[in-house]
């Protein structure tokens, strides 16, 4: 080590470059360049456009913010993502508390189930919801048995079905980071709060919740990003009238072969989702005084 330092700065970084270099090069060629290329493409016009133009312009982005199909799908994507993320959090937080106070065997069992569902195919999990929400499926049959409906109601292929499946898909991504951050809170912190006269609920609100903020932020951010970019789920459980942005963009690429507009739509989604996550991170770190 001391020899390489003597030989100069370049040598010091040599082993790092040898080990990291190949991946950086790979990711540059197959990730950074294609994205740059896509961004460049999105500034062009498509032969089928009303007024095709030569050279670069933001026409495709203007189109994205003006056409009702893209605007609606952007709004819908945002709405579905927010709702799904909030529901996922509300459902998952009790599971993390349950994990915290369970004996080891139950704990491992819950975590195994979580991992297995994380590892199960998304298509298969969505199929499971098609089964649950089917016309002759259990939910319909229970509601008919309870005499709430007279005839089966179509429950799949709707926004509600998409949200249900997205919540289900996001659960492991919410449970694991929150449980991880709960584990890092020393038990003595909760005990101190109790000994100072706070009951369990107050302790949860004033000590546990703020201290698990890094995990809550990680989980909600991940869920939100997953929902914003969801494609397979609305494809399987939605209808054309519930299309989300990824679907609209893919449609332009695959069906219309409109590469410029498809690129512009997906870039708009990417930037929009980054912007929201960024604002969220800023809010969390400011309000909760947590480094995120």
């Amino acid at each position: 080590m001391s020899i390489s330092i003597k030989r100069g700065r370049g040598r010091k970084y040599l082993p790092a470059l040898v080990m990291l270099g190949p991946l950086i090069a790979f990711m540059f060629i197959f990730y950074a360049v294609p994205f740059g290329n896509m961004a460049y493409e999105s500034l062009h016009s498509w032969p089928g456009d009303e007024k095709p133009h030569v050279g670069l312009s933001v026409f495709q982005y203007e189109k994205t913010t003006q056409k009702s199909r893209t605007v609606k799908s952007l709004k819908r994507t945002f709405r579905i993502s927010i709702i799904s993320t909030i529901i996922t959090f509300i459902i998952c937080f009790p599971i993390t508390l349950l994990l915290l106070r369970s004996p080891p065997r139950i704990k491992v069992g819950i975590l195994l189930v979580t991992f297995i569902s994380l590892a199960s195919s998304l298509i298969i999990r969505n199929y499971g919801w098609l089964v649950v929400l089917a016309d002759a499926g259990p939910i319909n049959n229970i509601l008919i048995w309870l005499k709430i409906f007279e005839f089966p109601k179509r429950m799949a292929y709707s926004e509600g079905a998409i949200i249900t499946a997205l919540v289900h898909y996001c659960m492991p991504f919410m449970i694991l980071p929150i449980y991880g951050s709960l584990l890092r809170i020393p038990a003595s912190n909760a005990e101190a709060s109790l000994s100072l006269g706070a009951n369990a609920w107050t302790t949860l609100r004033r000590v546990i919740l703020p201290l698990s903020m890094p995990g809550i932020f990680g989980g909600t951010m991940l869920s939100f990003a997953i929902c914003m970019s969801s494609y397979v789920t609305p494809l399987m459980l939605g209808s054309p009238s519930t299309a989300m942005v990824s679907q609209v963009a893919a449609e332009q690429i695959e069906v219309q072969l409109n590469f410029p507009w498809g690129s512009a739509i997906i870039i708009t989604l990417t930037l929009g989702s980054f912007l929201i996550v960024f604002i969220y991170a800023a809010l969390v770190s400011k309000v909760m005084r947590v480094d995120v």
Partner: peptide, 20 residues
């Protein structure tokens, strides 16, 4: 009595100060 009603003052080994 539950812990929060015992009116005892506790000093923990790791102090357990609320970091936030």
């Amino acid at each position: 009595l539950p812990p929060h009603k015992r009116n005892l003052g506790l000093v923990f080994q790791d102090y357990a100060l609320f970091p936030h």
